[in-house]
């Protein structure tokens, strides 16, 4: 039953998506797949396989050359201006380098997740409602960092900074959370804290989570489904109970060099 429901109503679909960079490099080659609502999807592959590009086509941080990306059954390719900002504000994103404003306080960084919902002049004057300030505190509570509310972002460790970035994304009240190598600059212990947080948001809030990872072990530990990219092509796509060591190895096979 559930299978049919998700098949008819995927939150994201890629339809014949191609991306060719200006210098002729192929970024993505004929990508076709659907992501059901509420899935924890992990994308694996070598550096340069197109994982980051794939992720960024969803919120249009990267443009595609041909094909279609559908979010909630609507093609996002033609969005401009306000429509594009409205698409982006419902998709949270976290990054390998956290991308916090280091000189600003944790509170300001978390509140900055809301700016898509506020008119520009209120953002510039910092006029956030008391209700939203309270939400910022609650978002920090969910990543267990309330004590750091008024610390400057650069006083925090890497793992803490990434959790602030997650809190910022939470302020968007996102339906989808994109995470581009979120743990690549973290040590094993903080890695677990960050991945556990993402998993919790997926399970408790029903947010669809898409994570790019280098580590196959982590992918197997957290994913509902693993897809693999090689040279811009989708070469692997299995639900977690079908994932095998041999299948994963095939993703990392490089073509014999000439």
């Amino acid at each position: 039953m559930q299978a049919t429901a998700t098949q008819t109503n995927p939150i994201i679909s890629f339809k014949h998506v191609n991306k060719i960079y200006d210098n002729g490099t192929v970024g993505l080659k004929d990508i076709n797949f659907d992501i059901p609502r509420g899935q924890f999807l992990v994308v694996v592959g070598l550096s340069g396989a197109g994982k980051s590009t794939l992720l960024r086509t969803i919120n249009r941080m990267h443009e595609i050359t041909s094909g279609e990306v559908l979010v909630d059954n609507e093609s996002v390719s033609d969005y401009k201006g306000k429509a594009l900002r409205h698409l982006r504000r419902q998709i949270g994103m976290i990054f390998q380098n956290f991308n916090l404003v280091k000189r600003a306080t944790v509170e300001k960084n978390v509140l900055s997740g809301l700016v898509g919902y506020y008119p520009t002049w209120r953002c510039v004057l910092g006029l956030f409602t008391p209700h939203d300030r309270k939400r910022a505190f609650q978002a920090l509570d969910r990543v267990s960092l309330t004590k750091k509310l008024f610390s400057r972002a650069d006083e925090l460790s890497g793992g803490q900074q990434q959790r602030v970035a997650i809190a910022r994304a939470l302020m968007q009240d996102p339906k989808i959370m994109l995470a581009d190598e979120p743990i690549a600059s973290l040590d094993p212990r903080t890695t677990k804290a960050v991945m556990d947080t993402l998993k919790r948001l997926n399970r408790e809030d029903g947010i669809t989570v898409i994570v790019n990872l280098h580590s196959v072990e982590l992918a197997r530990e957290y994913a509902d489904r693993i897809v693999g990219l090689r040279s811009g092509e989708l070469v692997y796509d299995e639900p977690i109970d079908q994932v095998t060591e041999a299948g994963l190895n095939q993703i990392y096979q490089t073509k014999p060099e000439a």
Partner: peptide
């Protein structure tokens, strides 16, 4: 800047 763009900032 990338992060602010991704939250839908003007």
């Amino acid at each position: 800047l990338e992060a602010m763009k991704s939250v839908g900032a003007s």
